[in-house]
Design a protein around this nucleic acid. Structure first.
Lengths: 224, 224
DNA sequence: TTCAAAACTTTAGGTAAACTTTAAGTAAAA
DNA sequence: TTTTACTTAAAGTTTACCTAAAGTTTTGAA
């Protein structure tokens, strides 16, 4: 899950970012409205968290402009004002939820989870394919043989694959979604994590496997 | 995917070109606006990256002239100015996106991918002719007999043929589109890949075949 | 009609790049 | 401290790509 966070107070931004990362989200943080708009356009976020009061462009305008460009990601507003008009304007502009500062991190997490769930419609906490199950809240990979906890990157990769069974996901797409497009890391890390996942799937006698499509990426498919 | 890159600073152009090529794009690089216009007209690019400030003709005029000629390829502007007017003018002229220098290569790649994705969402993902189907995302060639994954060059050739059934495609056109104008390779490689494709089509009992038109090129046609 | 050159077909093999895996090092968390 | 997550490096494996060379077919000039 990739989240865009736009919040001009850097300390607050860092705090939120740390919490989100700790919960296995990939986070891009920006500190003004213009960057928020640019990032939102350039990438395919699962969720966008926007402060309303920001330099260069306010959150509501960012949202309006993104929606005008066809960006449909769910948006949550952070607002210092408890002003009702502001909320109405935000929701009218196409926001899915809002949160008034100050707020508890737990509430933010819950709302983000809810929004992402709404987006994926079916709201499965467990992803399933073949004889394996991936639990999104404990990060556990299970079969009848047993279960294993996945590390954050492992989890994110398998989540992407299980969300799109039989669909090719390019190595670059993994990098973008999980490491960020400005990452210093080599493409190599993706290969390493694929290797880790395959090893764990084998350990659990999974009947799915990750197929490499040379020069393109990977697909998750059922064993024949 | 074939990209036209117009950027007058040669070092910058080379750097961008190298990155794009490494990411499986075919790149034509030009160093002034006039060439950009001519190349853009002469070939069918999937995406055009234009510097705004260029000798002979500026990027915005290049875009306007191309659009006037009916060229619909998505266009991304590179601009040194963060000047808002410039951006507005660019977007008004029909650009799909812009990027302010300096920028991260990763961001450029992400935006190009996004633009091409938007375009390819319109195009059907499966190509079909006779009893065979070519899946554009997994590169798989299927019939009732089974399926085979095509290598990158094989795929690109068959894609060109299936996009233009019963139309003659010259050997030179294959070379240009797939290997690039300045390729060192012999014309021979086209013949070799045609041979590979025919072998695979036969293996799958395809009812289409690639007919050679001596001295001209190849056509894809249904077996009688 | 013949036959040699040109145009294409096909196969085989070397090379480089893409991918896999393991091992080892670093930094952060428990 | 110990453990865990993450990354890099490097050695091993596989495969796409291209070249070269040996067929095969077609063409057209003699």
């Amino acid at each position: 899950m990739k989240i865009l966070l736009a919040e001009d107070e850097k300390e607050m931004a860092n705090a939120i970012s740390a919490v989100l990362k700790h919960n296995h989200y990939y986070v891009d943080a920006v500190y003004n409205g213009e960057d928020a708009y640019n990032y939102g356009l350039a990438d395919d976020y699962d969720c966008i968290v926007l402060d309303i009061m920001m330099p260069k462009m306010n959150g509501i305008d960012v949202l309006k402009n993104l929606r005008a460009k066809g960006i449909a990601a769910p948006v949550l507003f952070l607002t210092a004002k408890s002003d009702v008009d502001d909320r109405i304007e935000g929701l009218d502009a196409g926001a899915d939820d809002y949160l008034t500062k100050p707020f508890a991190m737990g509430e933010l997490l819950a709302r983000i989870r809810a929004m992402c769930r709404r987006k994926s419609e079916i709201a499965p906490n467990d992803l399933q394919m073949g004889n394996v199950t991936l639990n999104r809240s404990t990060f556990e990979l299970c079969t009848k043989k047993g279960s294993l906890r996945l590390a954050s990157k492992e989890f994110q990769m398998l989540e992407m694959l299980m969300n799109n069974p039989n669909v090719l996901i390019s190595t670059e797409r993994f990098m973008e979604k999980i490491w960020g497009y400005d990452s210093e890391s080599e493409i190599n890390v993706v290969w390493v994590y694929i290797s880790y996942l395959r090893k764990k799937l084998t350990q659990l006698d999974a009947d799915i496997n990750i197929k490499a499509v040379r020069g393109a990426g990977y697909t998750l498919e059922k064993k024949t």
